[in-house]
Amino acid sequence: MSTAASAAPADPDQAARQGWIGLLARAPARRLAALFPELPAHEPLRRPETGTVMVRGRLGATGAAFNLGEMTVTRCSLRLASGAVGHAQVQGRNKGHALRAAALDALMQGPEAERLRRQVLDPLAAEEAARRANRAAKAAATKVDFFTMVRGEDS
């Protein structure tokens, strides 16, 4: 699903981590808060901070990179009592979103991963897939079906 897969990660653990970090970044903040309301005890390494990322494009879609404009991003890093470290960089200015994403990134590296995958990540992924499918279906409904009129001289 994520284009991050194009980075061709060396090991499957990294691919899995890229997957959940991307999913958590794209998730609606309110939905994440509903699915994961209680933050675990943690030590902040970098408190949530809002800044920007310069988004780049390519000239002619495939050519040289250029600066398109910035987007707001909030980042956060923390350490759990277990020692696991979590990072987050999420679109927008919602500090709670970044905190939850960082906490989940750390927790997903520990023994609670399976439970959290079931309770948080799977529902988020399913909802995202449904959102995307819905949008794709609505776009597809506007696809043109051309038909050719039979002309006199051809018959």
């Binding site: 991050a4 980075a7 990294q14 890229q18 970090i21 970044a25 890093s77 990072h87 960089q89 999420v90």
Partner: peptide
Amino acid sequence: GMVEVEMEIPELGFAVTVGEI
């Protein structure tokens, strides 16, 4: 349409999706 925005995160050592625009 929507595209994902990916960024290298130094702490992680690889690129992740930070959002969609």
